[in-house]
Amino acid sequence: MTKLRPYRFKRQQLAFPYMLITAALVIVPLFILLYYACTDYATGKVSLMNFAAFFIDRENTNLATLGRSFFMAFLTTVICLGLGYPLAYVLSRSPFNRRGILIMIFIMPMWINSLLRMFAVKNMMELFGVGSGFGAVLTGMVYDFFPFMLLPLFTSLSNIDRSYDEASNDLGATPLVTFIKVTLPLSVPGIISGVLMVFMPTISTFAVVEMLGSQDQNMLGNLINENISFAPTRNVGAAYAFILLILVAATMLIANLAGGKQKGREAANLL
C-alpha cells in the first residue's frame, strides 16, 4: 500500500503564471494580428490582398517609405556609432572613468520621457531657425537613440582587460596598431549590440517624424500607425505590422548569424 504523500511544489512551477501570461498575451495576440492581416475588412473573408497592397499601391509610395525607413535607420546608426565610439572609448579610459559618474550623466536623458526629449529637440531646432524636415528628423533620431549606442559600447570597452594594451605595447605596437588589432576587435560585441539597439527601434518609430518632420519623411512606423488609426484600413495596417515583424525577426537572425549566438543574446539582454 502506498501512502499518499503531501503535495510539495517544485520551484519550476513558479514560472507557470508567466508562461500562461506570455502564451495568452504575447503569442496569441501575434496570431490574432496575422488573422486580421489575412482578412478583408469589408467582407471578412480570408485574402492576402492586405499584404499585396503593400507592394502594389498606385504611386509606389509604400516601397519608397520602406526604403526611406532603412536609409534613415542606417544613417542614424552610423552617426550614433561615429559619435558614440570615440566618446565611449574616452570614457572607458582611466582619467575619465572615476566611479562611472560621467557615463551616468551621459546616459541619464534615456530616463526622460522620449516624447519630452523630442519636444526639447523641436524647441532647440526652432531656436536655431531650422524648420521641420529631414535635418530636424535626423537630429531628433540621433538625439533619441544615442544613449542606446553609448551604453553597450562603453560596457564592452570598459570590460576589456587593460593588460592586453600593455602586452601589445611591450611587443612594440604603436597605440594606433594596438587600437586596430586589439581594442577594436574586442569591442565588436558592443558594436553589434549598439547597432541593433539603435537600428531596430529607428525603423519602427513614428513619433519623431510626426513631431519633427513632414509627410516627406514618413517611415514604416508612420504607415502602420496611419493605417491602424482609421478603421477601414485597419486590416491593411495589421498586414504592414506583420511585415515589420518579419523584418525585425530577419534582422535579429542575421545579427545572430553574423555575431554568433552569444552576441545576439547580449544584445537582447541590453535592450
Binding site: 498575451l25 495576440p29 531596430m200 502602420i224 491602424i228 495596417g237 505590422a241 506583420f242 515583424l245 525585425v248
Partner: peptide, 15 residues
C-alpha cells in the same frame, strides 16, 4: 524585447 513596440501595441489592440 526584440519586437517593435508598435507591433506589440497593435497586436494587443486586436487581441
Amino acid at each position: 524585447l526584440v519586437n517593435a513596440d508598435i507591433v506589440t501595441g497593435v497586436s494587443l489592440m486586436f487581441f
